[in-house]
Amino acid sequence: MADKIPDLHAEVRAGTGKGAARQARRDGQVPGIVYGGGVDPLSINLDFNKLLTRLRKGRFMSTLFNLKVEGHDDVRVICRGIQRHVVKDLPIHIDLMRLKRTSRVNIFIPVTFLNEDTCRGLKAGGVLGVVRNEVEMNVLAGDIPDELTVDLAEAQIGDTIHFSDLTVPDGANPVISDRDFVIATISAPRALAADDDDGDDVDADEVPTTEMGPPADPEE
């Protein structure tokens, strides 16, 4: 991951419960909770607009932040949950977990496909079908990778990309470790697939006429 851990600014929330959370939202803030690390949970508020901007940049759930709260020591946190409005799909509550650099955590890391523009299979008309655009990995909190990559340059139509084809940083392990699961496929274009299917069709007048015998005896 990047050398510089981004800051996430928050302030202590006055009061607890639904009433304090509603007031925070009316004031243009998003209520949240910080937990873990062997200390008591801390109720916080984050600026709604700033949080929304970060969410729209992507990878919020897989980013390690340096949480800055006035009156408290800075602490590394990772988001473990975001509640959203059921209609507007906007954040209404956030859960943050304290971490040490040596802590291990399960998070989803996005998969990036390299050299799509020069991929042999795609240039020949193949279609990239993404099965998993992210993979849950067990990683050190201080070494969370930005992405997992796979090089498609030599991939051909009919190829299947598995987890073992990805470039994975040292110390990062898949949570599902008992099988080499599929990440993506490169399939034939629909027109070609349709032509192949047509080759199996046989017109009625191409079938030789034969005299049918009696039905088989079920006891035989």
Rank of each mutant, 00 (worst) to 15 (best):
77 V>K: 03
70 E>A: 14
136 E>M: 08
41 P>N: 12
27 D>L: 08
74 D>R: 02
155 A>Q: 02
36 G>D: 09
54 R>A: 15
188 A>R: 00
135 V>D: 02
104 R>V: 14
203 D>L: 15
103 S>A: 15
103 S>I: 03
205 D>Q: 13
11 E>Y: 06
95 D>L: 07
60 F>Y: 09
52 L>H: 03
7 D>A: 14
53 T>C: 00
34 V>L: 10
81 G>Y: 00
99 L>I: 15
39 V>P: 03
77 V>L: 09
169 P>F: 05
80 R>T: 11
216 A>H: 12
142 G>N: 06
39 V>R: 07
153 A>S: 12
104 R>N: 12
93 H>W: 06
196 D>C: 08
138 N>R: 09
104 R>G: 05
203 D>F: 15
38 G>T: 09
21 A>I: 10
105 V>Q: 03
16 T>L: 07
7 D>H: 10
193 A>M: 11
64 L>E: 06
39 V>C: 00
11 E>C: 07
15 G>A: 08
120 R>I: 11
43 S>E: 04
51 L>Y: 02
154 E>N: 12
45 N>H: 11
156 Q>K: 14
152 L>W: 03
136 E>S: 14
220 E>G: 06
24 A>D: 06
11 E>R: 09
147 E>L: 11
103 S>M: 05
35 Y>N: 12
220 E>Y: 00
168 V>M: 01
156 Q>R: 13
16 T>C: 11
162 H>A: 05
